[in-house]
């Protein structure tokens, strides 16, 4: 699943560590999500949406969608 985490984080001038701290996850988790190697759980996806104050569907893109 593609996501806009890296782009949105950079816009806000946050490091991966800053975002990890806000989400209460490890820096590696943020890195894995940004690299599309790990899809977050639904509760974490909602936390990410709250941190960026955006709806989930604007953060994640369903790669199976045609």
């Amino acid at each position: 699943m593609k996501n806009r985490l890296r782009e949105l984080r950079s816009q806000r001038g946050w490091s991966q560590l800053d975002l990890a701290d806000r989400l209460d996850v490890s820096r590696q988790t943020v890195n894995s999500i940004e690299n599309d190697r790990y899809d977050p759980s639904l509760p974490l996806a909602f936390r990410i949406a709250r941190v960026f104050q955006m709806p989930i569907e604007e953060l994640f893109e369903d790669s199976e969608e045609t």
Partner: peptide, 8 residues
């Protein structure tokens, strides 16, 4: 590798 204070 650096991590958040909570994880450390």
């Amino acid at each position: 590798m650096a991590d958040t204070p909570a994880h450390v």
